[in-house]
Design a protein around this nucleic acid. Structure first.
Length: 378
RNA sequence: GGACGGGUGGGUGAGUGGUUAAAGCCAACAGACUGUAAAUCUGUCCCUCCUUGCGAGGUACGAAGGUUCGAAUCCUUCCCCGUCCA
């Protein structure tokens, strides 16, 4: 995997670049839609390509390992072929499930023992095994197993957790290097910076991980319940210390108005469940702020979800129709709303990239900070 | 005409003498969601008032009357609805 910087903002830390993978080139900064179970819920790859056009998707090691099983995916020709996605795929290691399924796992030095949320069976995840699973899936960008710590956490607990994550990263990267000697395709591996909400621990974690000379680095452990400002602060504490010539990936963020904040702090990659999940739950992101489609005031609203959006949903349907589909519980609602929300995220990223390339990112940032055109946001 | 069964808050539908302004579900209204155990979850959902509180009044279980300290629940009459028999 090769990362190439094309332009840097003279005022902020924002940069535009290209990540070259076996499954295409990824223009950065980029937002990656989440397809946990080898599908972006509600949307086909064809719809995704036509209407959202993301160069890369996220998928998940824990979920695909349990079902259908990574060996099944491997036998079926790898994840790209299995799910019909020709472009790049990044797989999360299962580190987030350490957080989200905390009642179903036990952590030890060796790794994480999960009790399957599907049938209760025990499964040991180690830094080495998660690399193997991701290589079996054929992931373009693999993530090292980490411990995503919840909020709040004491400094002591955070330090213990972070040190273990660092040791796991070293094991994971070493195993990955060994495995890659006999594999001729490209499969990057990113370690993940932890350190909770302590800036000095974040910095310490970065220093430890730099020795690994990995192809890229992620900042994890954010969006776990902490105040919004803290997520930015922690990014601020870690991002500038990461290698300039490698992609930086902040995991699991954020709201639309936060995307420029991360980019301005030198972040190249982001992913989040918000656009897809909120779409399904009736929360649409627009250039004029949020639209909660079930609200009675949209009952007879003939306007598109977002008049400024060019996606299929906005080109074709009224808010009234979308509201009807939502209230009727129709499957099509999820498809149309997800297409729109993802398009909005991806368009925002493309606008930022253009702004960085043309040297106008500071303007973009200050416009963004003034909020959406309508006061309807929140 | 006769025999049963039944009428409960916007809809369904529990409740068959007192923690019942009345379960649950649905609808309606509002909110949440951040490396997805989520097509999920939460709140409100008779009216009025305020010192907004597991607050105070007022109405309410087809209608009217009655029994009782107390009735959606028991009794009487009436009005509707359903099924069956003539």
């Amino acid at each position: 995997m090769r990362f190439q910087i094309q332009a840097e903002c003279p005022v902020t830390r924002a940069r535009a670049g290209l990540i070259h993978t076996d499954h295409g080139t990824i223009p950065t900064p980029i937002f990656m839609p989440v397809g946990t179970q080898a599908t972006v819920k509600g949307v086909s790859p064809a719809q995704l390509l036509d209407e959202v056009d993301p160069p890369i998707l996220l998928s998940n090691t824990y979920h695909l390992y349990l079902r259908p099983g990574h060996e099944t995916v491997r036998r079926l020709g790898g994840l790209h072929k299995f799910m019909g996605w020709p472009r790049a795929i990044l797989t999360d290691s299962g580190g987030f499930q350490v957080f989200s399924l905390d009642s179903l796992r036990k952590i030890s030095e060796e790794g994480v023992l999960f009790q399957s949320h599907l049938d209760g069976s025990p499964h040991m995840f180690t830094p080495e095994s998660t690399v193997d699973v991701q290589l079996a899936l054929g992931s373009d960008i693999c993530m090292v197993l980490d411990e995503c710590l919840g909020y709040p956490a004491t400094r002591e607990a955070t330090k213990v957790s972070m040190d273990r994550t660092i040791r796991w990263a070293k094991r994971g990267v070493q195993h990955w290097r060994e495995r890659m000697q006999s594999i001729d395709s490209l499969h990057a591996l990113f370690p993940i910076v932890q350190g909770g909400m302590f800036a000095d621990l974040r910095a310490e974690c970065v220093r430890e991980l730099l020795d690994l000379d990995a192809p890229g680095y992620a900042i994890g452990g954010l969006s776990v319940g902490e105040p919004r400002d803290l997520s930015q602060e922690m990014t601020e504490a870690a991002a500038p210390l990461l290698p300039k010539d490698k992609p930086r990936y902040v995991m699991g963020v954020g709201m639309p108005d936060e995307l420029p904040e991360y980019v301005s702090r030198g972040v190249d990659m982001m992913d989040c469940v918000l656009p897809s999940r909120n779409a399904r739950n009736g929360y649409l992101f627009t250039s004029e702020g949020r639209v909660i489609i079930k609200n009675a005031r949209f009952k007879d609203d003939p306007r598109p979800v977002d008049p400024a959006c060019k996606c299929y949903t906005c080109r074709t349907f009224s808010r009234s129709y979308l509201r009807h589909l939502f209230l009727a519980g129709e499957i099509l609602y999820s498809t149309l709303s997800t297409i729109h929300n993802l398009r909005r995220y991806l368009d925002t990223m493309r606008q930022m990239r253009d702004a960085i390339l043309s040297g106008t990112f500071p303007d973009f940032l200050s416009t963004s900070r003034r909020g959406p055109a309508s006061a309807d946001s929140e």
